[in-house]
């Protein structure tokens, strides 16, 4: 039974694309057949993060409009055999997507893959609502700051009202992925704490991804962080999140503040 997972947030720049690539790769590494679909038509980025930008010939818009077959547009990852990418178009805009076309493509993908990971564009307009339209599950990516939390709250409301499941009287499973979390700044009150975000959003926690330069390094070489440096803290957090998506019970690792030896030695006397 295939699962359609939308990675969404409302706000831009919180880590949807990074998380889509990392979770998709982690699910594929766990042996699942995975496709990651870029719904950000006009501002495609997922191909860059996945290192496939030179291999794009046909894209989602071509398939939705019937100009290309699905098999022609799918790009298989070179590192993980069970991971594929359906890229977005960079030259079109979101109006090129039609609800009927998207439904047809999602249904075709359901026949081929175990997991269909939809990377949603920012915002609450057509692109974002079409990306979430056929979702069974949602990963709500949130940064620990108030504007991101409020936008996520808005998106959760839309997941509860505008999706095909919601209209059929069912619910979309929603999970919170807290990204760019810095334990030190949260402790100093410069960021919201995990409990604060959970209290406001009231959905289960999928994982906490620590703020780390490993994420940026991986993006710049075109590799999901879970493949680029599997032992790094964000990669392990994404891998744990993927295991939770697969139904395993894994305790959430709380990122701890990294202190240098010097600050540990002298931190007290300065204060």
């Amino acid at each position: 039974m295939s699962k359609v997972l939308v990675v969404t947030s409302g706000k831009g720049g919180v880590g949807k694309t990074t998380s889509s690539a990392a979770l998709g790769a982690a699910l594929a590494q766990a042996g699942k057949n995975v496709v990651v679909v870029d719904f950000d038509v006009g501002l495609r980025n997922l191909d860059l993060i996945m290192g496939a930008e030179r291999r794009v010939v046909f894209d989602l818009v071509n398939v939705v409009q019937g100009d290309a077959k699905l098999a022609q547009a799918l790009i298989r990852d070179k590192r993980v055999e069970t991971l594929s990418l359906l890229p977005a178009s960079q030259t079109r805009d979101k109006d090129a997507l039609t609800p009927e076309g998207v439904e047809r493509v999602i249904n075709e993908l359901r026949e081929k893959f175990d997991w269909i990971v939809c990377d949603s564009p920012a915002g609450i307009e057509r692109g974002a609502t079409l990306a979430m339209r056929h979702a069974d599950m949602a990963v709500v990516v949130t940064n620990p700051e108030v504007s991101s939390v409020r936008d996520s709250d808005r998106i959760i409301g839309l997941l509860d009202s505008k999706t095909a499941k919601a209209e059929a009287g069912e619910t979309v499973d929603k999970h919170l992925l807290l990204t760019r979390y810095d334990a030190g700044r949260a402790a100093r009150g410069e960021m919201l704490k995990v409990e604060d975000v959970l209290e406001i959003l009231a959905i289960p926690l999928l994982g906490i991804i620590p703020d780390s330069e490993d994420v940026l390094k991986a993006s710049n070489v075109g590799s999901p962080v879970t493949l680029h440096n599997p032992m790094s803290a964000p990669a392990r957090a994404y891998a744990e999140a993927a295991r939770r998506l697969l139904g395993e019970t894994v305790a959430v690792t709380m990122p701890v503040e990294k202190k240098s030896l010097m600050s540990r030695l002298f931190g007290r006397s300065v204060a």
């Binding site: 709250d153 808005r154 959760i156 409301g157 406001i200």
Partner: peptide
Amino acid sequence: PVRSGQSIVFEEGDVTIIGPVSSG
């Protein structure tokens, strides 16, 4: 929960909410 951007309008009488009412 009543999420950000949602509006519950009930002119006929009282409203009882069990759950949070979000900012916005």
